[in-house]
Write a protein that binds this DNA or RNA. Structure first.
Length: 261
DNA sequence: ATGGTGGGCAGCCCA
């Protein structure tokens, strides 16, 4: 079984110790991180190596930043969306054995109708283009990350109050639908899950304690990979720790014995 | 109640 995870750590520097604890306790082979908020010069190579992982990353100071940590060798790493100039570091893709992994930090969008919302929708068009290209080259594609979109109302603690808001708006869900139209399967929904399962809770007003969250951290697999998935779950435990990220990690395991990996 | 909390970097920006 090969285990993958995705986690928006909201500052890798602040969350490094928690990440180490969590990786060690959960036997994670590959983890995709978002919001590392570190320039590449400041990436904590030594600390990550000491945890037993190698890393590829595309970072910037203060905002955004993505990384992939792996116990296995990585090949053919690409940062960004080819053909789309974007100073914001939000995508890194690499090959781990038999799987093409795409790690994304989708723009938040701020509010419906804002400039950032327009950027989010334009960015998602470019992501779809990249996904289509990757699917044409790779049979087993795993796209994970912070999508900043709750796919369905059951991924929202109070759909009525969120109706039409950023993270759930029709245009965002339509853009997400154009990803799943390529056959990408939301792995979490392939399995029986507890009700009210979310992956992000605002820091404010005791949102976590009241489970007022959204499920926006997702793991999507191509038709050649999804049937090999044996579990997918959200681990809330790190969200209960002192000084947590506002996101919980999500993990999935794959049985790749049939592809000789 | 257009607030509230947290991260980063220097009085705000972003989530």
């Amino acid at each position: 079984m090969l285990s993958f995870a995705t986690w928006n750590v909201n500052s890798l520097r602040v969350r490094l110790a928690q990440l180490g604890l969590w990786l060690g306790a959960n036997a994670i082979d590959v983890v995709a991180l978002q919001e590392t908020k570190l320039s590449d010069e400041d990436f904590p190579h030594a600390e990550i190596e000491a945890l037993g992982y190698r890393a590829v990353f595309s970072g910037q100071r203060t905002y955004n930043g993505v990384a992939i940590l792996s116990r296995l060798p990585l090949q053919a790493t690409v940062a960004g969306l080819p053909g789309y100039e974007d100073p914001q570091r939000r995508v890194i893709a690499t090959t781990v054995g038999a799987i093409r992994l795409i790690n994304v930090y989708v723009p938040n969008g701020q509010s419906v109708g804002s400039d950032k919302y327009a950027y989010k929708l334009a960015w998602l068009v470019q992501l779809e283009r990249f996904l289509a290209q990757q699917l044409s080259e790779h049979e087993r594609v795993l796209m994970v990350g912070d999508f900043n979109i709750a796919p369905q109302d059951r991924d929202v603690h109070d759909p009525a109050s969120w109706q039409g808001s950023v993270l759930v708006s029709e245009a965002e869900r339509a853009a997400f639908g154009r990803l799943t139209d390529h056959g990408m399967s939301d792995l979490f929904r392939r399995f029986e899950q507890p009700g009210e399962s979310f992956s992000w809770w605002d820091y404010r007003q005791g949102a976590y304690r009241r489970n007022r969250g959204l499920r926006i951290d997702l793991m999507l697999a191509s038709p050649g990979l999804a049937p090999l998935c044996r579990y997918c779950r959200i681990d809330r435990e790190p969200r209960t720790w002192e000084r947590p990220s506002d996101h919980a990690p999500c993990t999935a395991g794959f049985d790749l014995s049939c592809v000789g990996a």
